[in-house]
């Protein structure tokens, strides 16, 4: 480390200098850590929604229950799409490390397209349910279901907007330090969404179908 520490013998309070390069690295590390903390708060957000769903899932108030409206093949498709998008995100990171901008953009685009398909599928399911009269206003179970799954979907949509902005930035400016940092944060966000989905498809859909 190219720091410059001025010490006097046993002095309890001295001076320290940090170079600009060190400061830059520290800033990126701090941002990375800060984003991790944000993800922890998002975990709590989803935990609260899961708790609400867990309490209200039996309250169908005469309307349909999970078994009535969930379709395993449909959810499996959504799950595989999201999982694959997580994988293509990994490919993006590998390409970024190798400083191969065209590959980064291609893998990012693949991630985006898969994400878009996921969101479209989810939206189509929601629209179908609402059209059949089984919207979130029908029962507490449906309110909880739409809100929990919808919040995840909203996170994915925000992720897609972020992905677009990031893609444009990388396309125009290349793999600069800020873009590398943003890629790092975005990849954590995207993988986090797949982590939450694991519990969504298990606890909501699969347990609902059982």
């Amino acid at each position: 480390m190219d720091t410059n520490t001025t010490t006097r013998e046993h002095e309890p309070l001295t001076i320290h200098h940090t170079s600009i390069a060190e400061q830059d690295l520290k800033k990126d590390q701090t941002t990375f850590f800060g984003f991790w903390i944000y993800l922890m708060t998002d975990l709590l957000l989803f935990a609260s929604l899961f708790a609400v769903y867990g309490v209200l899932r039996a309250n169908t108030f005469g309307g349909p229950s999970g078994a009535d409206i969930f379709s395993a093949p449909f959810v499996l498709t959504e799950t595989l799409i999201l999982l694959t998008s997580s994988f293509t995100m990994g490919l993006t990171m590998m390409a970024a490390r190798a400083n191969r901008k065209p590959l980064v953009l291609a893998a990012l685009a693949a991630t985006g397209l898969l994400g878009l398909s996921f969101v479209s599928l989810e939206l189509s399911e929601f629209i179908k349910l609402i059209a059949a009269g089984h919207g979130p206003q029908q029962s507490a179970f449906l309110s909880a279901y739409f809100t929990l799954v919808g919040t995840h979907g909203l996170h994915v949509m925000i992720g897609l907007a972020w992905l677009l902005a990031l893609g444009i930035s990388i396309g125009v400016r290349g793999l600069t330090r800020p873009n590398m940092r943003k890629l790092l944060l975005f990849s954590m966000f995207w993988h986090f969404l797949d982590l939450v989905w694991i519990f969504l498809f298990t606890l909501v859909y699969l347990w609902g179908i059982l």
Partner: peptide
């Protein structure tokens, strides 16, 4: 808190049933 306030707002503004007396709310 964010979640709870949102759910109450969803009840009031969009007619959902998280905490309502009817509709299975708790």
């Amino acid at each position: 808190l964010t979640v709870t306030l949102t759910l109450l707002a969803l009840d009031r503004t969009f007619g959902m049933h998280f905490f309502t007396a009817g509709g299975g709310g708790n």
